[in-house]
């Protein structure tokens, strides 16, 4: 018994000794996935999205035009990812006009920002604000609304930040989401610098489409090839009446793969006001579900194969009279 125990110890020791063996990420569960495949097929409700690509995946969420829902998307996709079990760091790169903390309801907990980290007033782990609802979600703000980051310096700083997050003790986060400011100014340049992929948020109207096209062009010039779009604030009733461009029209104009289609939902405003992201709502709402689906596709590097076009009258069952 003792020898067996000893042997076991020895084995474990041996297993852990190679210093350059890559540690398994317990969250992505990539190596143990193959033997557990059958079980996954059986347990439909417990299946997890397969994380594709190298971690950390640095995703910039951008749009060009303001007010199309970049920050909402960041908050909801970020928290969805956290709920799916991935560790997420959301960076609010909107230097002057940051809002992500408000949307997440973390505004009272932001004491330090990246500015203080750079100045040496605090360490990076002190500036990361951990969400109490989902402890694998962390928020990082670039600066306080009134302080100023030296222009042209932000890009470098963000690259350092990403490197530092990669090398931190508790392991690299799976996702780093960067909430990009509107416009294509210095803030935009800062935000896209460390990114490997981009999520373009647009609404189905020509103003935001033109900006989205331009931003896509700039991203492609910068070498970010993996660009997917989220079409936000879609109204199927207006599309049916041909008062709004359909999602397929938008895709035809931009030529980008679809990550998600978010229907217009009054709950979005309510959740923004509450500082409680939509995806945590119970029962889930239409837009919340759409955000969850988008997050799932982001994990799997998948894109939509079909889109909802119009509402069909629901076929009523015999017992629907009783509230079915």
């Amino acid at each position: 018994m003792l020898s067996l125990h000893h042997h076991h110890h020895h084995h474990r020791f041996l297993h852990f000794t190679p210093p350059f063996s890559k540690p398994l990420n317990p969250k992505t569960l990539k190596p143990p996935k193959k033997p557990a495949h059958k079980i996954h097929a059986l347990l439909q409700y417990n299946r997890k999205p397969q994380l594709a690509g190298d971690t950390p995946r640095v995703v910039v969420i951008t749009s060009g035009k303001g007010g199309v829902g970049k920050t909402t998307t960041t908050a909801n996709v970020g928290l969805s990812l956290a709920r799916l079990g991935f560790s997420v760091v959301a960076i609010d790169a909107d230097v002057g006009l940051r809002n992500l903390d408000l949307l997440l309801g973390l505004e009272n907990r932001v004491n330090y920002t990246v500015m203080e980290v750079l100045n040496g007033d605090c360490r990076l782990d002190q500036a990361l604000v951990r969400d109490k609802r989902w402890s694998n979600f962390e928020l990082l703000c670039i600066s306080k609304p009134r302080s100023k980051l030296p222009i042209g310096f932000g890009g470098k700083a963000l690259v350092w930040l990403v490197d530092a997050l990669k090398a931190r003790q508790e392991g690299s986060p799976d996702f780093i989401l960067i909430d990009c400011p509107a416009g294509i100014d210095a803030g935009f340049i800062t935000a896209i610098t460390p990114a490997n992929e981009a999520v373009l948020v647009t609404t189905p109207d020509i103003t935001s489409l033109r900006d989205a096209d331009r931003v896509t062009g700039l991203l492609e010039c910068d070498g970010i090839r993996d660009i997917k779009m989220i079409v936000n604030r879609v109204r199927t009733d207006m599309i049916k009446g041909e008062d709004m461009m359909s999602v397929l029209d938008v895709q035809e104009m931009l030529g980008l793969a679809l990550l998600g289609v978010i229907p217009e939902d009054s709950e979005v405003i309510r959740s923004t006001n509450r500082g409680y992201p939509l995806v945590l709502n119970k029962p889930p709402t239409l837009a919340g579900l759409a955000f969850e689906q988008a997050a799932w596709r982001l994990v799997e590097q998948d894109s939509m194969k079909a889109v909802m076009v119009e509402e069909e009258p629901k076929k009523r069952g015999f017992f629907s009279f009783f509230g079915g």
Partner: peptide, 12 residues
Amino acid sequence: CGKVYRLAPITL
């Protein structure tokens, strides 16, 4: 959410 939507395939 209790509403039935028609789906159209992506053609891109």
